[in-house]
């Protein structure tokens, strides 16, 4: 059987995490290739509906990366992200979707190493969790 190659969507904030990812790339750090990145202006623009939509369309995991609390380019955008993601994970868990499929991380522009680490770790975790159960309905 072919090894499960997860599809992971990463929403990364333009100012910190995206720059951090850039640094990781420039520094030639090794990372798994299952990660598809979408650059957003602020992690605060991530509506939980985006996350559900990604699951609905077949994503196995969703990563949300923002600036550390206090560093938000828009002052408090990531405060809202943090609160929303907390609620989102609760609802996912009640619906039967493992909340570990959603991960929120603060990665600054200087933390290329951290970016590589959290991505590697997240991909490994999703591989452990297996394919998104909502995907089943697309088959058959």
């Amino acid at each position: 059987m072919k090894e499960f190659e997860p599809k992971i969507i990463g929403f990364c904030c333009n100012w910190c995490t995206y720059a951090g990812a850039d640094l990781a790339g420039v520094s030639r750090l090794q990372m798994p290739p299952d990660f598809r990145m979408i650059r957003v202006m602020c992690s605060g623009t991530i509506d939980p509906l985006f996350v559900m939509e990604a699951f609905q369309k077949g994503a196995d995991g969703i990563f949300i990366g923002g600036c550390h609390i206090g560093d938000c380019h828009y002052q408090t955008g990531n405060h809202r992200t943090k609160k929303r993601v907390a609620i989102l994970k609760k609802i996912l868990s009640y619906l039967g979707i493992d909340p570990r499929r959603v991960r929120l991380e603060w990665v600054s522009a200087a933390e290329g190493q951290k970016f590589a680490e959290v991505v590697t770790d997240f991909v490994a975790e999703i591989k452990r969790l297996g394919p998104n159960p909502l995907k089943r309905k697309f088959e058959a």
Partner: peptide
């Protein structure tokens, strides 16, 4: 669409 349609209300009403 399941569970999207109902998820919208669950989240918006949180």
């Amino acid at each position: 669409e399941i569970p999207m349609f109902h998820f919208i209300r669950f989240y918006h009403l949180a």
